[in-house]
């Protein structure tokens, strides 16, 4: 039973882990694009998108920590 719970959590951890580098990549891409934007409107748009990706990454890392703590707790029972 505990093994199944750990497996379920590990699957979620894996989804989060695989998503974080993608959020980082998108943030960097939007940031670089904002720096090269041809006009103010485009610059603001890409800066906003970059900030949103940074928030996504932060939330994913928080969820990751919660899941890892839950896994540790189950394993220590």
């Amino acid at each position: 039973m505990a093994g199944e719970e750990v497996k379920r959590i590990e699957e979620l951890i894996e989804v989060i882990l695989r998503s974080i580098p993608k959020e980082r990549e998108a943030r960097n891409l939007y940031r670089q694009t904002a720096a090269r934007a041809p006009n103010e409107m485009a610059r603001l748009l890409f800066e906003r998108l970059s900030e949103q990706e940074a928030v996504h990454e932060q939330k994913l890392r928080a969820v990751l920590e919660l899941l890892r703590a839950e896994k540790r707790e189950i394993e220590s029972r």
Binding site: K7, E10, E11, I13, E14, L17, R18, I20, P21, L64, R68
Partner: peptide, 10 residues
Amino acid sequence: YNYGGVWTPI
């Protein structure tokens, strides 16, 4: 560095 060194099944 990209995946934090977190050990998962994959």
